[in-house]
């Protein structure tokens, strides 16, 4: 920690004649200490990911805790363990419905907040912020309290309702950030050139905000797909992938769960990297 110094650390390299090896090492260390620190932070962040990945190739059978030997069996037969694929399909369907709804509702709110002045803005902002600042157990248990009191049966729809609720805020914040960085004069220029308000929105604003909306949709999808705590309170007998993994943790998680997690990881990473790459090329062009 002591060496995580200010930005000018690199500038103070010794220039005098022939520093000793020890001096050279300490100068090198001083310049690179923060990079070394960051390297270990990345090891910490990514070690469990590597474990999850490696254990998808474990010849483990039912309890995938200790390394037994390499096999491709799990990858060739990802639905081999009971319930795994069913729960993944459930999670994907929930996340798809949630993404569509939350992205739509949240984007509309973001437009209202950035582009309009109206009474009650502060209250609206507070109501957007609060779900993000509330622990998931409280969100989950309060919704369950509502469903129990008005006797709504738990299942697919209660999970969807809950997920949309906590995804809206994240969509609003993501789209709002993008929208606020846009120059409103672009729209005005379009309208000066005789575009109607709708045309200006359709041809100018929407294309410019689209990356923000896409990022928000991705965020909503991954939040919904990976949610466990709120789902656990409101799902009843309905099983999602995280719930399946958690429930089977006591009797042993099948290696197929790691296969699915690894595959999802690769797909998500590919989407993010491709969109970054595409964005870069567009900017350079």
């Amino acid at each position: 920690m002591s060496t995580s110094t200010g930005p000018a650390a690199g500038a103070s390299a010794p220039v005098d004649t022939r520093p000793s090896a020890g001096q050279r090492f300490s100068a090198w260390f001083g310049r690179n200490a923060i990079k070394i620190y960051a390297f270990f932070a990345f090891v910490y962040l990514l070690l469990p990911v590597a474990y999850t990945f490696a254990f998808s190739f474990n010849d483990a059978g039912r309890t995938n805790l200790v390394w037994q030997g390499f096999t491709l069996e799990n990858w060739l037969n990802p639905c081999g363990a009971p319930e795994v694929c069913g729960s993944v399909v459930n999670s994907i369907v929930v996340a798809a419905v949630v993404t569509a709804m939350a992205t739509l509702l949240g984007t509309l709110i973001a437009f209202a907040l950035v582009r309009h002045r109206f009474r009650g803005r502060a209250t609206t902002n507070l109501l957007i912020f609060l779900p993000m600042a509330t622990p998931e157990v409280v969100l989950g248990s309060s919704l369950l309290a509502l469903f129990l009191n008005i006797l709504i049966p738990l299942g697919f729809w209660t999970v969807v309702i809950a997920h949309i609720m906590f995804c809206i805020s994240f969509v609003v914040v993501t789209v709002k950030a993008r929208l606020a960085s846009l120059d409103p004069r672009l729209e005005q220029a379009a309208m000066d050139l005789y575009a109607t308000e709708w045309q200006a929105f359709r041809r100018i604003t929407l294309p410019l905000v689209a990356p923000g909306i896409a990022a928000a949709a991705l965020l909503a999808f991954s939040l919904s797909f990976d949610d466990f705590i709120i789902t656990n309170f409101n799902s009843g007998q309905f099983t999602t992938f995280p719930k399946f993994v958690y429930v089977s943790a006591t009797r042993g998680i099948p290696p197929q769960a790691n296969v699915i997690a690894t595959a999802m990881f690769i797909i998500a990473l590919a989407i993010v990297l491709i969109s970054q790459f595409a964005g870069k090329r567009k900017r350079e062009a």
Partner: peptide, 18 residues
């Protein structure tokens, strides 16, 4: 991207990896 990469692996599975 490497900082957010862990999010792409299920939260529960990462904890079990620990």
């Amino acid at each position: 991207v490497m900082v957010i990469a862990p999010f792409f692996v299920s939260f529960i599975l990462r904890t079990i990896a620990w």
